[in-house]
């Protein structure tokens, strides 16, 4: 067996989800190789080679790969896949965009968003917003899989000594051009890897009120997330959304503030170790999954929480 992991990166650094995907690859077994496709991205290949458990890094350094466009990248993956038994990508917007395209080019099915490896051909994946867990077996000769990163610990970023092998670029179909991006900048930890997440919902009432979460997040070293309703209302950007169709998080502590607890929101956070809900409606469904429920108006609770945390230093 040999597993190829598709690295997610920004040409300068490896992104966190790649490390969780390497752990899933190790759970399958066999040799683990990482494909780093980008432009001017040798530093990323070097970082990938240092990840514990990585035996080999394939480096495809060419302009068409600069922005992770699916069309050229899928052709490259399809060209490399036949040398492996498995090809894995993180189930992030990057992996979800490119891997199914590669799968179809190879006439292979894809197993999406696995949360456990049962054996090299059998995997567990959540369906129906996580309300059911399916155990599935892929009968295809090469298994293409996206990995739910919150279900696998990150592999240690150091300790490996993989060899870097340069591979040629595949054809560039030139179907799409990247014309810009608007990325949220934050000093806080990344939502999907943070140890603590505090999320606000429609109950926050405005984007300005999200400032009430900031000192608490700062004090706890937490990431800030949101429900879909809060994103749709324009309180915070789209990349804050936690849920079935947003980000899946499983931190040690998840604090839901002014969030009712719809199935689609729970799908993104119910695997958190400890859940706290702050809601003024004691009937809110979020309390059915919360370890600690606080029935209180959030505009009263948040300033007090800030104070108590200061005291508890």
């Amino acid at each position: 067996m040999s597993v190829l992991v598709i690295a997610e990166h920004d040409n300068a650094a490896l992104r966190g989800p790649t490390l969780n995907t390497v752990t899933a690859a190790k759970a399958i077994g066999g040799e683990v190789a990482v494909l780093v496709a980008g432009s001017g991205c040798r530093a990323v290949a070097e970082a990938a080679a240092r990840v514990a458990g990585v035996g080999k890094v394939l480096l495809a350094d060419a302009p068409p790969y600069a922005n992770g466009l699916a069309e050229p990248l899928a052709l490259l993956i399809a060209a490399r896949a036949p040398a492996f038994s498995h090809v894995l990508a993180p189930a992030t917007t990057f992996g979800k965009n490119v891997l199914p395209r590669a799968a179809a080019l190879l006439d292979l099915a894809q197993v999406s968003d696995i949360s456990a490896v049962v054996s090299p051909d059998t995997f567990v994946r959540p369906i129906y917003a996580g309300n059911a867990l399916a155990t599935v077996r892929s009968n295809d000769p090469i298994k293409l899989i996206t990995v739910r990163t919150s279900a696998f610990d990150p592999a240690p970023a150091e300790g490996g000594a993989g060899a870097i092998e340069e591979v040629p670029a595949a054809a560039d179909p030139a179907l799409a051009t990247f014309s810009g991006q608007n990325l949220s900048k934050s000093e806080r930890p990344e939502l999907t890897s943070a140890r603590i997440v505090i999320s606000g919902g429609r109950g926050m009432q405005s984007g300005d009120n999200f400032k009430l979460l900031e000192p608490i997040a700062d004090r706890l070293g937490a990431a800030i997330g949101a429900s879909r309703a809060a994103v749709d209302a324009g309180f915070v950007p789209n990349d804050y959304q936690v849920g079935q169709t947003g980000k899946i998080v499983a931190p040690d502590l998840y604090i839901a503030v002014g969030i009712s607890g719809a199935i689609q929101h729970l799908a993104g956070m119910k695997d958190s170790k400890v859940i706290v809900a702050i809601n003024k409606d004691e009937e809110a469904p979020i309390f059915q999954v919360a370890d600690y429920g606080l029935v209180m108006d959030l505009f009263e609770a948040l300033p007090r929480l800030k104070e108590e945390l200061e005291k508890a230093r």
Partner: peptide, 30 residues
């Protein structure tokens, strides 16, 4: 191409209790 071998319910989360106030919440979390 993919066979579903079985479909199960995810582990159920039990609801914990309510806390009386913010101080109790912080104490419990700590």
């Amino acid at each position: 191409r993919i066979a579903t071998l079985k479909v199960e319910e995810p582990p159920k989360r039990k609801a914990g209790g309510k806390v009386a106030g913010v101080a109790e919440l912080v104490d419990k979390l700590k």
